[in-house]
Amino acid sequence: MKELLKIEFKKSLKNKSFYVSIIIASVFTILSLIFCINNYQNDMRMMRDLSRQSEITHITYAPQMQVDTLFNHWVGGEPVSLGTSVYFFIFPILCAIPYGWSYCVERKSGYTRTMIVHSGKKVYFLAKYIVTFVSGGLAMVIPLVLNIMMAAALFPAIKPDVTYGVHYAVFKNSLMSELFYTRPFLYVFLYLCIDFVFCGLLACCSMAAASFVRQKYIVTLVPFMICLALHFSMKFTYDFNNYYNKEFSPFYYLRPSSVSYPTSFFIIGMTAMVLFVITFTVTNVWEKRHEIY
């Protein structure tokens, strides 16, 4: 198992697709950063002009003010730029590109048979599942971490103040909002964990789809189709009051900032659980019982 995991990790993390995925994602996160820098400079300019024009000298830009901070200028903290909008729209494809297709290709080429003879079905499928999961998660989280690091070099990491709440897209009913205003780094870390797990599971959907579809390109797009279907279904979901008020679109609830409806742990957890049960059953139970020749 250890040996196979080592080989699979090497294959997944040292392939061109993984780097391409990270680069594309980073381009969009940088696009968001440029937008934030422009906004930040405009704010500073405005404050400076205001203090010059008026007699009121206390209107000067104070860097300790909780209006422009790291937590509303990194890609996950701002919900308005084009970069963040595109990034959180195409992420299901980006997390399947690194390794989601590998099982499909290996099955077609006959590599799966060789590996199963060498290490056994159980070990092969489990190792493949783990590696696909990790590569999907990393493809999502690495660009976010890079963005936080770049943003941290430019914006002050001041603890957000609830009185400046209008400048943050985290409201009273948002997920972990209390944590955001008390321990913002922990909030960011927990959101990165949620994103890692969810995108890992989305990448595993590609692997599971390979059991039914033989086209590598279709398999890679399966996570995107799942997210789009969930997003689309939300538009037509009503509760007894004719209005459903919880977010269940992965395009929105994987963002640390609130976009539409409040996010809930229950919906994220349930979706992740369903994805895990389906993908694990298909890849590690159903597929294991099938003839490989």
Binding site: N72, P79, Y217, I218, F232, S260
Partner: peptide
Amino acid sequence: IPTQDNPFKFPVIWTTLFVICALLVLI
């Protein structure tokens, strides 16, 4: 109009319509 209190929400129906069409002729 991008402002802090107006997050960008893409048009769901329109996007789904054109995305599915692009998907159908892709492969």
